[in-house]
Design a protein around this nucleic acid. Structure first.
Lengths: 240, 240
DNA sequence: TCCCTATCTTTACATCGTAAAGATCAAATA
DNA sequence: TATTTGATCTTTACGATGTAAAGATAGGGA
């Protein structure tokens, strides 16, 4: 009881997680010794997967270095060797998230057929990813503890931005050159990103439920998103 | 050395903070005994002020119960008695932030004269507050550790939302009834809030610097905000 | 064969949130 | 006026966390 730390009995059969997710142990080069060797063989990846599971199960506040180590069945100091830091782990996990995110955005466009569908595919995929992986999205966009000097994170996040800028360029039927932007181009990018990101943050924080609850019966979040993105803008003089 | 906790020597003259901020000690009812009594007299308010100072000085990660207690010159367990919890302290601090925020929004409209100024006064004040108090804004909108069942926080945040909805109603020259919304009304509110909130979050996270750096020389953040809010929307077919 | 190095475990320590019990004082009560 | 009471603040204690440092273990090359 005194040491509740090493609860999973060191060096004993590690739980192969829940059930249907990832091969139990990649077993690096040799024929696979199969019985929990001292050296894990692919701990880094295993820790990242464990971190994702902990994040989805226990939320952001439950995502600690020690919890991840427990989940992976290794000693609590093992993650430090691979990521150096909690910041390191979070950053690498965020990089994983950005790659998932980018993939989801890219594949969403393939399924679109009509012009309207194509126009809404990206923002819908954006919000859908955040709803499906709220913890991951939180890590990616909410945490101040990220180290963007890590190339993996920097590149994955950069790719995300490039995809957005590219989509806006398509929409405006202009070529967006990598180095310079007009004010209108910048404004268009900022508007698209701000609108979708803001919507997502407010949605995840539950701050849109106030609005959703007052809309006509049965109006879905997706419908509100559509309306927000497509409805005409009217009016003036906002100050009371 | 062993107990670095009570560094400020218990019951000795408490540091009256930095210098020019708030009366050193409110001294409740009696003639003011002046010499650090056992009972502080207005610890709750003092702790909130201390929390704000710690937040601005050391950032969100430095804002701990113990740090706040140190800043206020009381024992580390004192805050618990007044706020129950770290969540409690953060929630009350967020409520203070929302009140500051609401006040800033309200007063910003007074200074506006031209129609264009009036139209942009609120969003500009919104972003300006967040830039001036990034830690506070983070507490208010970024933290998952808030307890909205606390009436002070609930009311302050609700007032903020009501102000927004009201402004949108003015803009659309409609009366927004408290209980029901049309889809277009909801979309207008969601768009305004998402756009400004998203812009602010991206700005505070430094994610807009990429864009700002590529805009024409000398384009300010405020100018980008204006352009984002007023520029006409053009184009179609975003998917690559 | 033997050592070297990366990998993982143990041990240790400061800090944090939080609970519980003790000390202090203002004010109500008698 | 003397006493009690309850709120306020301090002490002490405990488990959890991040992180550093030293020890154990093996895989691979000399």
């Amino acid at each position: 009881m005194a040491k509740s730390e090493t609860a999973r009995s060191p060096r004993t059969p590690r739980k192969t997680s829940s059930a249907s997710s990832a091969p139990p142990r990649p077993a690096r080069r040799p024929a696979a010794k199969a019985e929990t060797p001292y050296h894990h063989g692919a701990l880094r990846e295993a820790l990242l997967q464990a971190a994702e599971q902990v994040l989805e199960r226990d939320g952001l506040s439950g995502l600690t270095l020690r919890a991840v180590a427990r989940e992976a069945g290794v000693s609590h100091a093992a993650p430090t060797h691979h990521f150096g830091d909690l910041t390191g782990l979070l950053s690498e996990l965020a990089a994983v998230g950005f790659r998932q995110f980018n993939a989801a955005m890219a594949s969403s466009c393939d399924a679109a057929t009509t012009p309207m569908e194509r126009a809404l595919a990206r923002p819908k995929a954006y919000v859908a990813y955040a709803q499906a992986h709220p913890g991951m999205y939180g890590i990616m966009f909410r945490t101040e503890r990220l180290d963007y000097s890590r190339s993996s994170l920097h590149e994955a996040a950069e790719a995300s931005f490039a995809g957005l800028a590219n989509a806006i360029g398509m929409m405006r039927q202009e070529q967006i050159s990598g180095d310079a932007l007009t004010l209108n181009q910048g404004a268009a990018i900022a508007r698209a990103w701000s609108m979708v990101h803001g919507f997502t943050m407010l949605l995840l924080d539950g701050r849109l439920e106030d609005i959703l609850g007052r809309l006509p019966e049965g109006t879905t979040t997706e419908r509100l998103l559509e309306a927000m993105l497509t409805a005409p803008i009217t009016g003036k003089l906002p100050c009371p």
